[in-house]
């Protein structure tokens, strides 16, 4: 069947058998490609151009853009707003939902709204405590937690009903994700926690920043023993450190980030610390890629987003593959499939 209408980048892709969403990220992962996602630093403004500018540096380099939901408990443009703007022009977005700011009524409504706008991927997070951000006097909601949130989204998608049991006439077609942190105690429980997230509905997970490969390897050994890497796509979080000073600050001020001393020493020993930070990031990605059971990386280059393209290029993880960018007059994979279907039907 050939297309009659011109290619509309914001339209969901045709649904493939076995897929739960109509987005590009799920396709890339299910094909077994090494996926790359990146986190967009949300603007403190109401100007859509700010979002487009920040997304432009990722274009053609990543398979999904994460829109954070008040990360670090600071106010920014909402993940819903960012996803609306980006999905409108064809970007694959990962809409983050944090349990800190919304109760179950708001969250379920947002999932329907997001999915209706073309968001195919949702990331279920607990969220940082309000104390971490610029509004420590806010009321923390935490009506759900990350795992009951995963379960809620899966119920909505697979059973076409809200938590209350009330019917959803058209369920959201979504790819559901969670977060993992192999670098925080209790270390021996962390793989089981991933198992629990999978049991609750996680199809992919993105991890906290990884700067400690041996620790990640120990975690992944256990994950493979449990067979979890076959039930869920695991994307490891990485990001360049701007300087040794920044690394120290992150280590003591951002919850859940573990940066071992040798990394900081390596930064300190360099003449150009920013460049060395990028080099470390590339080295880490190349080591992560070699670990069995890892499906991709999640780039969190906070305030250094312009480095993402270089890092992805220099690390060679795409192996010549080019993720979607504007101006592709059709989605390459869809076009190929249509040709194949025509061949098969004749």
């Amino acid at each position: 069947m050939s297309r009659i209408v011109p290619y509309d980048p914001s339209a969901p892709l045709p649904r493939k058998p076995g897929h739960t969403s109509r987005g590009r990220l799920e396709r890339v992962l299910r094909r077994g490609e090494f996926a790359v996602t990146a986190e967009l630093n949300p603007p403190d403004s109401a100007d859509p151009e700010d979002v487009y500018e920040r997304a432009a540096v990722f274009e053609g380099w990543v398979d999904g853009i994460n829109a954070t939901d008040g990360s670090g408990a600071n106010c920014h443009m909402s993940s819903m707003g960012i996803c609306a703007l980006l999905s409108r022009i064809g970007f694959a977005t990962v809409m983050q939902i944090s349990c800190r700011d919304h109760n179950r009524i708001a969250i379920q409504g947002n999932v329907l709204g997001g999915a209706a706008m073309g968001v195919a991927n949702f990331l279920c997070l607990t969220g940082d405590g309000v104390q971490a951000g610029d509004q420590p006097d806010a009321k923390p909601v935490f009506d759900l937690d990350s795992i009951s949130l995963l379960n809620t989204l899966r119920t909505m998608r697979d059973e076409s009903r809200f938590l209350s049991g009330r019917k959803i006439t058209t369920p959201p077609q979504i790819f559901i994700g969670g977060a993992i942190n192999p670098f925080a105690p209790p270390y021996d429980y962390r793989p089981l926690r991933l198992a629990k997230k999978i049991a609750a509905g996680a199809q992919f997970v993105q991890s906290q920043y990884c700067y400690d490969i041996p620790m990640l390897e120990r975690y992944m050994d256990r994950v493979r023993d449990l067979g979890l890497h076959r039930q869920c796509y695991i994307l490891i979080g990485v990001g360049p450190l701007a300087s040794a000073r920044a690394a120290r600050w992150i280590r003591s001020n951002v919850p859940g980030v573990h940066i071992p001393d040798p990394i900081i020493e390596r930064l300190e020993g360099a003449t150009d610390q920013k460049r060395e930070g990028k080099r470390i990031c590339i080295d880490l990605i190349q080591q992560i890629r070699e670990i069995e059971g890892i499906a991709g990386v999640h780039m969190m280059a906070y305030r250094q987003e312009e480095l993402v393209a270089e890092i992805v290029h220099d690390s060679g993880i795409l192996k010549g593959r080019q993720p979607w960018h504007r101006g592709m007059d059709t989605d390459p994979e869809t076009a190929l499939e249509e040709v194949l279907e025509e061949v098969q039907s004749t």
């Binding site: 349990c99 800190r100 607990t126 969220g127 940082d128 405590g129 923390p140 935490f142 937690d145 990350s146 795992i147 009951s148 977060a179 993992i180 942190n181 925080a184 105690p185 209790p186 429980y189 926690r193 629990k196 609750a200 906290q208 919850p255 859940g256």
Partner: peptide, 12 residues
């Protein structure tokens, strides 16, 4: 955070 399903990622 009133978490009933396990630790968050922020444990020190």
């Amino acid at each position: 955070k009133g978490l009933r399903n396990g630790p968050c990622g922020g444990v020190r």
